[in-house]
Amino acid sequence: MRRFLLRRLLHALFVVWGVVTVVFFLVRLTGDPSAFLVDQTATQAEIAHARHLLGLDRPMWVQYVEFLGSVPRGDFGTSIRDRRPAMRMVLEHFWPATAELALASLVLSTVLAVPLGVVSATHRDRAPDHLSRLGSLFLQSMPSFWLGLMLILLFAVHLGGLLPAYGAGSWRHLVLPAVTLAAAPLAQNVRLVRSGLLEVLQQDYVRTARAKGLGEGLVIYRHALRNAAIPVITVTGLSLGFMLSGAIIIETVFSWPGLGRLVVQAVPARDFPVIQAGVFVFAVIFVALNVLVDLLYTVVDPRVRLP
């Protein structure tokens, strides 16, 4: 167990290093922010001076080494646009706005998938199956900004302000963006639960359980679902990256003050510190959650043992 964790940790460190390295060089390929720091009348010399003040005129490798040195301290420098510590800004937007949204849609997309998937599997190829699958596919087949705008029009305008059209702060604000973000992973999870169940329901131990006279509901929820949960967990772990970055568009539509919008607006402004800090946080969360997923396997499926 300890060796596993150690290896996993090293692996995680490597991935995070890789991501920050890629982002470091990638953003520098897009030019530099000195154009934003001078006025419209600046001469070439003044632009060069602004670049010098930012330290962007030094050799790339010097900047890179310095950057790597400051990452472990959590120091990503000062935002060029906002002139505040970049990491502080990123964390302000991550917590609570992004965390809330990601968590809520994670819960929605997994918790709702179970009953829908179960209904699908137990009524295979009958109306409820078609309904649940078509319904979830339908949600998945719309671009999220489109779905979001439709929900706003429906709930905020036509239903007389049943749910707020913008902003964050309460569960009522959370409903529409979370549903929009959950739409695509939900469909996928319904499929996974369904196919997982169909497969398990044919297997010996389930037949045995049935033969022992256990109720169908108990069979499904105690035995079969455990098995079906594994692919859901795997795919969810991987789609968390999507949850975090797919949120970018949903944050714009719903005026949600999250991390995605912060980072996306930082790219055209060439606000390197904010982009780097934001992508770093994305990567850390992604890696951490995937370690968590590995650990979850052992809980859900006793057959999986950590080496």
């Binding site: 692996h11 490597f14 991935v15 995070v16 890789g18 991501v19 890629v22 982002v23 990638l26 953003v27 390929l29 897009t30 991987l238 990256g241 999507f242 975090l244 970055s245 797919g246 970018i248 568009i249 995605g260 980072v263 996306v264 790219v267 982009i275 934001g278 992508v279 994305f282 990567a283 992604f286 890696v287």
Partner: peptide, 16 residues
Amino acid sequence: LGDIQLGFPALVLAIA
């Protein structure tokens, strides 16, 4: 390399 790619928010990569 694949792990790194997955750990990078896809849209941010595309924008950059």
